[in-house]
Each structure stands twice: as C-alpha cells, then as structure tokens.
Nucleic acid binder design. Structure first.
Lengths: 256, 256
DNA sequence: AGGTGTGAAACTCTTCACAGCA
DNA sequence: TGCTGTGAAGAGTTTCACACCT
C-alpha cells in the first residue's frame, strides 16, 4: 500500500469488515421491501435469499453489528432497518452534488434510489454554459464557476463525478479543495486524491470486460467438455451460481 | 466465483484469480494510454502507479498470465496490451444489447468505452412503443417484442439491463431464454438466473451508501480524536485511506 | 545496477457446524 | 424445536522480500 503503516492501534473495535459494509445496502434494500409488505420478522434464511447471499454470511455480517435477532424466531424487520440505516449513516441527510450533466449525470439526477435513502441532490453542475439554468430532474443546472460556493453553502461532503475522463481530475481537485471528502467517480480515470478522501469508482466498460472474460471461458470449456460429461447440457446443479467476484478494489490513491 | 468452474478437476490450471481478472481492465486502460503516447516499455512500478495499484500486486497478477516482462527492463507495452486483451477475450467482437433506453440506457449507448474495447452495441430495446424507431446514439430503438429475434439474429451473448427494477427480472428471463449467458444489471434488484449465467450488477445507490458509511466514520473519528493527538487537525496518519473495499459480491441468484 | 517473478507469510473473507437461547 | 450467534477451519487475496535474470 502506499505509505502507510497499517495498523491503527487505537480507534477501537468499531471494525466492521469492508466486505460486510458493502453488503449492508443489499440487506437494507431487501428489508425495505419486506417492510413495505408489512412483514414483521424474517429468518436469516429468508432474508439471505431475498438479498442474494447465503445465510451463514448474513448472520456473520449481522454479528458485527450486534445481536439484533431472536433465537428461534428471526429478526425484527423494522428494528433491523433502523439499525442498518444508522450504521450506514443514512439516518442523517447527505447533500450531494453531481458534476457533469450529460446522459449519465441526468440519469443519476433522476434516479429515485438516492432520495429514498438519505441522499439529497443539492446541485447539478456542468461546464457547458448552455446548460446553465436548464432544469434536469427539476433541479436547475449551475455552471462550474459556482462549484466552490455550492459546496460550501450546502455543506456538501459527497460529490459525484460524471464528466468525461479528461475533466475528472480537475473537477476532483476542485471538489476536494472545497471540502468534499467522498467521491463517486464514473469517469474512466484513476483519480488522485489526498489522504483522507475516499473514492469509489464505477466503470461501465470494466464490468463488461469481466463478463467477456467469463463468457470466453464458457465457450472454451464447452468446446473442451464435449464428451467428458454425458449428463445433458446445462444440468441443474448448485444454486449460488453467479457470485460477483471481488470486483472492486479501487486504489484511488495515486502516488504522483 | 462465477458460475461455472468449481467442480471439474480437469479444466487445467487456467485458473486466474477473480481478483486479478477484475484488475486486468484497469491495467489495460493504463497500458492503452501509454500506447497512445508511444511509450515502448514500462516498469511494474510505473504501470502500477498509472493503474492505481501497488507494484507487488501488479507483478503477481501478471505472473498468472505468464512471464511477459524482462528483468531489469520492464514490460513491452504493445505486447502486454495484446496479451491482456486476449486473456479478457477482447480480441473478438462481442455484440451486446441494451434493454431499457431511459437516461441511463442512453448514457450507456453513447458511452465510447464500449466500442473502443471489443463491444458493439447490436441493438437498443425499449418497451415504450413511442421510442421505437427513434435513434439513440445513432442506433434506432426497437420494441421489446423483437427481443428474441434480435438476440438470435445477432448471436448476442451479453445483455445489459437498464430498465426500472420492476421490469428487470422479466427482461432477464427473456434474455436468458433467448440465449444470453452474461448480464450486466443496473436495476436495483437481485436477479434470479439459471446456473451457467453470469450476472454482474452496478447499483448506484449502493456505492453512495458505502461512501456514507465511511463519511460518517470520518466525522466520528474526528470528534473523538480531539485531544488525543496534539499534532494538528487532520494530521497525516493513515495512508491506506481510500481502497475500494471488496465491493462487489453479487449473488444474483434469487429464490422465489 | 535494475527490475521481474515468486515462494512464503500475513491478512481478509467465507463457510462450516454446533452450542445455546427463546 | 427452531434459529441465532460464533469459534474454528478453510479459501482467497495481498504483501513481503529476495533469488535470479538482463
């Protein structure tokens, strides 16, 4: 890793594993659906199925949060929704700005999944003066010149970058300088940020490339398997099938 | 683990770890940039920096592909581009269909990153009859009724779902029935697919929730730290900062 | 010298399997 | 009885550190 020294002696055991954190939103989504159907309790087995994980993993994940279940019964849906929301920090309001209002930025602005969690789109920002003032998803687009003012006035700490790759680092620098400490990056570039700033990235073409890898392997195996196993083509077999591998791992910190 | 493997003692040692596969596109992007600047060779250190990983990891990753470097020198850029492309299956053409042409679907259709890899948008499909015939990114949108025909005529094995959550499973079923074996899902739902079909998902709000978790933790630590360490506010401290955790892990299989 | 390739150690995450409580 | 909570085993991933080649 970069410089660091690793272990943090102190900071106590608030240690929820990253892998667990990444699944909490999944559980939350499943729980919200149950809540809307007024289901009072769920077993780890049922909830795991709804979230698409196995029950042992789910129970282990929840064990990091505390003992919120009842043996012999299961989990109280409403209570769990609250606990997970709190753990994820969704009980507070998070103003976010979206920079780069092309198709993707517009899609993000219109995406209902944000508002339903604690996220509020505080502003849309674009470098194109022609966009300024035009409303997208009911929010008027503002010019990049206003970026710093917007961040400060709204106390924004989370920024979404949906600009072309070429503009991303520059936008990122300005966001960070203005006080943003978490960035969700859709531009296909590695962003360099100072220590203390989190970056997560979503790269559409990377996901497709991973699929292509597996797709190619299937084709190869298929050809190779001709004859080795006489039991029909696809066969039934194990559930589980498609786990999404360790995907991510975005370093985000870049040593000059 | 995606679908397939597992069983089958045979299939020989073509085993590239998932974590490595997930990083190959990152390396490829960095290498492509170097290639465009006509850089002939790179060291693991330089390339790692450009891709945002550390050099030991990069060398280990490449070691799974073979010994493509030269000790004391580094890696030949063009050669590596080719080897990685081949490994990912990008030396062949992958026709893909995008289903659901809202803002997000349109963004995907317009995304240049696809064509520049081996992906070709074979068709855009939407359920809204009013969209039919209208061109998006130069490609006319076709109605959902045509889905099966399009898949078959074009030999499509990769499908992208950008529909609302409610329609996703149905679309998924039709894609699979028509022969698609890899799906990239943008709808916030767990998709149920038969064995042998890969699903990767991208959920915008999940990424934001993970950022919120860390953001909240930062705020907490900051408050808690007041006084414990006299050296200025933010301090240097842990480098580490922004690794994108084990993010993914999409189960994709959903019972009932 | 300079930088790759790689065993081995360290760490993280997942799965097992069962004790223990409602 | 039924299902949670969890120690322990197992699998996968990252990092170390150095032998080895150019």
């Amino acid at each position: 890793m970069a410089t660091g020294r690793t272990h943090r002696p102190a900071t106590r055991s608030r240690g929820i594993p990253e892998a667990t954190v990444a699944r909490l939103p999944l559980y939350l989504r499943a729980l919200t659906a149950l809540s809307e159907r007024s289901v009072p309790t769920v077993s780890s087995e049922e909830l795991a199925a709804a979230a698409g994980v196995n029950s042992a993993k789910l129970r282990k994940d929840f064990s990091y949060l505390g003992s919120y279940g009842t043996r012999g019964v299961g989990y109280d849906v409403e209570y769990l929704v609250y606990q997970i929301s709190r753990e994820l920090g969704l009980t507070q309001d998070w103003p976010v700005v979206i920079v780069g209002i092309g198709n993707l930025g517009a899609a993000l602005a219109n995406y209902g999944g944000f508002a339903s969690r604690g996220f509020r789109v505080a502003a849309l920002i674009d470098a194109d003066p022609a966009m300024a003032g035009r409303p997208v998803a009911g929010i008027p687009v503002q010019h990049t010149d206003e970026l710093e003012k917007i961040i400060e006035d709204n106390g924004v700490s989370i920024g979404v970058i949906a600009t072309p790759a070429g503009a991303a680092q520059q936008v990122c620098d300005r966001l960070v300088a203005a006080g943003v400490t978490s960035i969700l990056n859709f531009a296909p570039t590695v962003l360099s940020v100072p220590d203390g700033v989190d970056v997560r990235k979503v790269d559409l073409s990377i996901e497709l490339q991973i699929l292509a890898f597996h797709e190619q392997r299937k084709a190869g195996e298929e050809a190779e398997a001709a004859g080795s196993d006489g039991s029909g083509p696809v066969a039934a077999a194990r559930q589980e099938s498609a786990e999404q591998g360790p995907d991510g791992d975005v370093p985000a910190v870049m040593p000059a």
